[in-house]
Amino acid sequence: MFNITIKYFGFLKHIPLLPHLFDSFMKISILFSNKHTLDYIDEIENEVLSWNNTTVHLHKFGGIQFDVNKKEIGHIHSNGILDILFSREIKTQLIKQGKATEHHTIKNSGWITLHIKTDEDKITAIQLLRDSYSRKFTSPSPL
């Protein structure tokens, strides 16, 4: 459903609020199909926000985006799809290790995707986000 919508109606993502509405409806639908995914997202969100200088806001195409010092760590769509941007070398390694797959739409890039469905996926997601956080984190100068 998600992939079909992205493939054929992806151009609608630029209409203000529509991606957020779509994401919310995905969240409602996943409540009936795999409600644990929503708990995993809650837990990941709480974990990431416990790290220094992290912030959260709505992702422009629906879901929540985590930043550190205004750089994106990664974002999660409400159907449990985690997207993170790494370098292409790291992406290749992660895919080889089975920790992630090609990004669900942007293939020719460093973007990776992880479908969070189980407790193990949640742990992997936190590891990947932590890795991304470490790479993007630069300590702010003390005030």
């Binding site: 609020l17 957020h20 919310s24 409602i28 959260v56 806001h57 709505l58």
Partner: peptide, 26 residues
Amino acid sequence: FGCIVSGAFIGKVMFRRKNNTLNSSI
């Protein structure tokens, strides 16, 4: 129902203490 829940989900992120953008444009 769909829109009230969507609004609540959007608001949840908007009013997060660690949201530095507030998404007030919404």
